[in-house]
Design a protein around this nucleic acid. Structure first.
Lengths: 362, 362
DNA sequence: ATTAGCACTTTGAACACAAGAGTGCTAAAA
DNA sequence: TTTTAGCACTCTTGTGTTCAAAGTGCTAAT
């Protein structure tokens, strides 16, 4: 007769079985599930009355709830949580799903942006839930290497390779004549004194010293440092993009104007998404289940995983859906795909040379 | 008793007045407007009966329609069209609106991406309709200049400046040792033979000749040309982004699940948007009003203008809303803003040098 | 410990009904 | 000839009622 509320106490084997059946049935049907349904459709060798008793207890423990006095039970947030953490089988991706995923990766080799885009399209198609792709800009970005392209007599392009692998450039116009020598000197000095240094530590004395030592090119130091700042410190390049939001409308819990409203708000509130994702662990698939007090809207859940490349978090990929979503399939898909992406983008040199070593383009 | 259907025939002064009043009232209220409403709220010096007669004729002519036998009239697509083309006053932007717009432009000088983004946010806020920002990639993009950055002993970054001003790069790994000489030779040759050439005209013989003449660097020709292709021909960089879609829910005609569905579909169908925009004139604000047969969903309208910089269409900015949207205000806002953006982005060199010649970053 | 049975609650669909809004038309007034 | 008052008619919308279905909790029997 355990009646504790969420006491962390063990559930009997039978309770687990019933909880699990309720949740899986509810994931399938989207409707409250009653005792009778379970007796006929799940293989539980007890009568509806027994199940009713057990469900009443599961409700008291906080795993189930009733929308109103007389309808079946639906899982609470705690119920889903328990399911995800302890009850759920992990879904096996089918061979054809794996093939699809791998094809995508192979064809779009190299580019974070385009990988993210096709990955999220693909996951949306595979899971039938909308996906979110996030590209983060690490705040500790520094310029690792400078270079230039001479354009005319009076302008050139300062090219910077950042530590996250992207390449930025800045078009600089001058009021004096440029030549190869001037720019060689400039980039040499920049590579020596400014590369690999956090922009905050670039001091005025350093800059003045650089300017002096550079002669003609000195006039360009100021502009160059500005360019560095623009592309590291103040660059707000992180992007959040959605794919397949329309799919939500197929799920009755979102097919109301109010629900739609909150979803649209969420979509437009990129910071909200980023914040949720920030709090996740970097080395596993995170499952956030929404409820009243949370950042996430009620009846919705968010499954995501950060993308780690060479030890750095470069983005994340996630799936948004109703709280009754197909956790096991989504978790497996996200897990597999993000692992592969991380590997693909890693610096590991190609083992064999039949594959060209293409990589990181901006 | 003219009873032609849309005969292109002149409407009497009184009919115009009534049509206009109906449309403006409907834009305000969002509901069918009846004869009685007009007698009391618009200053039409006739009785409701007279207005009823006129409205019946306007309906026969195709400018108005009744949702059902006994409710007021609402404008048809033809009605809106006539209103936009002939009846509408142009809205005067208020001083504060102009100030807001100009501030935005000043602060974000230089960068198409970020200008588009803030512009669309601003227009969404100002008009209370969602906005669309489109960036197009001109298909005649060619690489104008090649350069490189040596990274390790076995990899380097091929840097390309494209004719649209953007800079792209590709990370290339090799299975032999690199040095400055090899890469200098490579980029020299690329600049001589491949720069400013449409990628379609790069033939195999040319490539083979290049490979031969380059010695060690020859092995890199193939990869380099591949990089050129990736970034010009097959680069699908045009982007469509929405801002403020949630606002639509405030308008009752969109506050239904079905309507939402079609809107979400539209948002996800970037090509659809691009196609609609393609057909617009480049030198004016275009107003597309949706109806059954059109590309655009019923009850919605789309107002947009292309952004022309130095004679090239680089993008577009548009406003999406219900067909009863506030045309005059939206048209004015879009017009003003897109004019200013086009000017701001034009090549005019900075007059004074107190402003650094910042430009085009990737 | 389990189950059959029953009374009870809630939902949701179907239906009827009244009120309100707006029309078209006719006949009178300007 | 043009305008308007008046009236019958239509359609929508909201409300109240009824009724069946689903599912529960509890008691008593197995």
């Amino acid at each position: 007769m355990s009646k504790e509320v969420l006491g962390g106490e063990e559930l009997s084997r039978r309770k687990k079985q019933i909880l699990r059946s309720v949740i899986e049935a509810h994931i399938m049907l989207g409707e409250p599930v009653g005792s009778k349904y379970l007796t006929t459709n799940a293989d539980i060798p007890f009568s509806s009355a027994t199940i009713r008793n057990e469900m009443a207890e599961l409700e008291a423990m906080g795993y189930l709830e009733q929308p109103h006095t007389s309808s079946g039970r639906i899982p609470t947030k705690a119920g889903y949580r328990f399911y995800v953490d302890s009850l759920m089988d992990s879904y096996k991706l089918t061979a054809s799903e794996i093939v699809t995923l791998n094809n995508m990766l192979r064809s779009k080799i190299g580019e974070l942006d385009s990988i993210l885009q096709s990955a999220s399209k693909l996951v949306a198609a595979l899971t039938n839930y909308p996906t979110v792709a996030v590209k983060t800009t690490s705040s500790e970005n520094v310029v690792e290497q400078f270079s230039y392209m001479l354009m005319g007599d009076n302008d050139f392009l300062l090219v910077m390779r950042l530590s996250d692998g992207t390449v930025k450039s800045k078009h600089i116009k001058t009021d004096f004549s440029l030549d190869k020598n001037i720019l060689d000197t400039l980039t040499d000095q920049l590579n020596t004194y400014v590369a690999n240094v956090s922009p905050e530590t670039i001091t005025l004395p350093l800059m003045m010293q650089l300017e002096k030592s550079l002669g003609d090119a000195g006039k360009l130091v100021d502009l160059s440092i500005k360019a560095v700042y623009e592309n590291t410190v103040s660059s707000d390049d992180s992007s959040v993009s959605f794919e397949g939001v329309g799919k939500l409308l197929e799920y009755p819990e979102f097919a109301s104007v109010d629900q739609m409203k909150s979803v649209l708000n969420m979509i437009e509130d990129k910071d909200g998404i980023i914040n949720i994702m920030k709090e996740g662990d970097a080395d596993k698939v995170n499952v956030v289940i929404g409820e009243d007090d949370e950042k996430l809207a009620e009846h919705s859940a968010f499954i995501f995983r950060k993308l780690v490349v060479d030890g750095k978090v470069v983005g994340a990929i996630g799936v948004f859906g109703p709280s009754r979503m197909d956790y096991s399939k989504v978790v497996s898909t996200v897990e597999y795909l993000s692992d592969q992406i991380s590997k693909t983008l890693g610096t590991a040199l190609p083992e064999k040379k039949d594959d060209d070593g293409a990589d990181t383009k901006t």
